[in-house]
């Protein structure tokens, strides 16, 4: 059942992005940035946590979960160190995604040439 929810939620977010892309002047860059802000905003009142508990991996795949992970890492550190923790913990949970993207990009850029 969780697979169906994952499918529906991730599909819905992607479709929402596509509808914004097709019907407004906003570019893909605008939409991804907007969705990250929405993801962080939804987590201000723990809404995104509830979505993740319900739909599982489907909510972790879209870019909205990037904003969710940023704010979560920050708040977890803020529990220990106060306001300064928001600065030190910001990248805690997203570090794996960003670091792996940087490393893979670097390695592949060394070996691959642009196709066109």
């Amino acid at each position: 059942m969780i697979y169906l929810y994952s499918f529906l939620f991730a599909g819905f977010i992607s479709m929402l992005g596509q509808l914004i892309l097709d019907n407004t002047k906003l570019s893909a860059g605008h939409i991804t940035s907007l969705f990250v802000i929405i993801g962080a905003g939804l987590d201000t009142f723990s809404i995104y946590d509830k979505i993740i508990a319900y739909v599982g991996g489907g909510a972790l795949v879209p870019i909205t979960s990037f904003g969710h992970s940023l704010i979560h890492g920050a708040l977890a550190k803020a529990q220990e160190y106060g306001l300064i923790g928001i600065l030190t913990g910001m990248f805690d949970l997203t570090a794996s995604g960003i670091t792996s993207a940087i490393i893979f990009t670097f390695i592949f850029s060394l070996f691959c040439k642009p196709k066109n």
């Binding site: 169906l4 991730a10 599909g11 479709m15 795949v61």
Partner: peptide, 13 residues
Amino acid sequence: SFLIGGIIGALGQ
């Protein structure tokens, strides 16, 4: 977009 995005989501789970 709905179908492909959904498949990626299910793949993630």
